[in-house]
Simulated scan of single mutants.
Amino acid sequence: MAVDTRGAARRPLRRDAQQNRQRIVEAARELFAARGLEATHNEVAHHAGVGVGTVYRRFPTKEELVDAIFEDGIDEITALGDAALSKPDSWQGLVFFIDEMCQLTARDQGLREAVLSRTHGGDRVEAARLRLDPVVAKVVEKARADGHLRADICDTDLPLVSIIAGAVTEFAGDIRPDLWRRYVTLVLDGMRAQTHPTPLPVGPLSPEQHEAAMRSWSPARQR
């Protein structure tokens, strides 16, 4: 006899099931922040203190687990872009956006990968990323049109600043958690419009190349 499970799927989780789900989400967030999105269901289960079967019942795929954690993070970065566009000084808006974005992603490797890579993440994370891209383009275009930003800087350059901040944190974050600020400031100075800027030896990534890089980037490493 066929059983209709659709009604059961809509019922709220029992209290113990809801607690297990919250433990799983918190454990995954901690692991992903420290080690990136390559952490496995087994590792999440061990960190959460639950059986791996419990993790799979709540989140059958890695994409669903990433969605549960990082959709809000990408939405937050998109909101930072909107806030940057509202600032009357477009250079200060750009600096604000880059600084706040790097502050979120520098010490959270999982969020950095969710923003910059399409290796993991389902429909909700992908939809959040698609909202982010045009906001970043507007922040860059506004600063460039106002003459604050070098004419040869484009929107595909900004994600690389986040990667720089993350690399500095991976190297020395345990010793100097805020060291990334030093190098992001150096990058921003290099991006600012100058009377006689040094010509850049190569061009930026095209939108197609940026997309290809996001789809092929596998930043997680064995610890």
Rank of each mutant, 00 (worst) to 15 (best):
D99V: 05
E100L: 11
E100K: 13
E100F: 08
M101H: 08
M101L: 12
M101I: 03
C102W: 01
C102G: 10
C102S: 13
Q103M: 03
Q103T: 12
L104D: 02
L104N: 07
T105C: 13
T105Y: 10
R107P: 03
R107N: 04
R107H: 08
R107K: 07
D108A: 04
D108C: 03
Q109T: 14
Q109M: 00
G110P: 10
G110N: 08
L111H: 15
L111R: 13
L111S: 15
L111G: 14
L111E: 13
R112E: 05
A114L: 13
V115Q: 04
L116Q: 14
L116W: 15
S117L: 15
S117K: 11
R118S: 10
R118E: 07
R118L: 15
R118Y: 10
R118F: 12
H120N: 11
H120S: 12
H120P: 06
G121N: 14
G121Q: 15
G122Y: 02
G122D: 04
G122C: 04
D123M: 06
D123K: 14
R124F: 10
R124P: 07
V125S: 08
E126K: 12
E126R: 15
E126C: 09
A127M: 14
A128W: 00
A128G: 03
R129S: 02
R129H: 06
R129W: 07
L130W: 09
L130P: 04
L130Y: 05
L130V: 07
L130N: 06
R131H: 04
R131F: 01
L132D: 03
L132K: 01
L132E: 08
L132I: 03
D133T: 14
P134V: 14
P134M: 11
P134R: 07
P134Q: 09
V135Q: 01
V135C: 00
V136F: 04
A137L: 03
A137N: 07
K138Q: 09
V139G: 03
V140A: 01
E141Y: 13
E141C: 01
K142H: 07
A143T: 08
A143G: 06
A143Y: 11
R144T: 11
R144M: 14
R144N: 06
R144D: 10
R144K: 12
A145T: 01
A145W: 08
G147D: 02
G147C: 09
R150A: 12
R150T: 01
D152N: 15
D152C: 10
I153C: 01
I153N: 00
I153P: 00
C154D: 07
D155V: 07
D155C: 13
D155K: 02
T156C: 06
T156M: 03
T156A: 01
D157P: 05
D157G: 04
L158Q: 05
P159K: 15
P159S: 07
L160D: 11
V161E: 09
V161P: 11
V161M: 09
V161I: 02
V161N: 15
S162H: 07
S162M: 09
S162R: 02
S162E: 08
I163S: 15
I163R: 15
I163D: 13
I164M: 05
A165I: 11
G166Q: 12
A167P: 00
A167H: 00
E170W: 12
E170L: 12
E170C: 02
F171E: 02
F171T: 15
F171L: 03
F171A: 08
A172T: 02
A172H: 06
I175K: 05
I175W: 01
R176S: 10
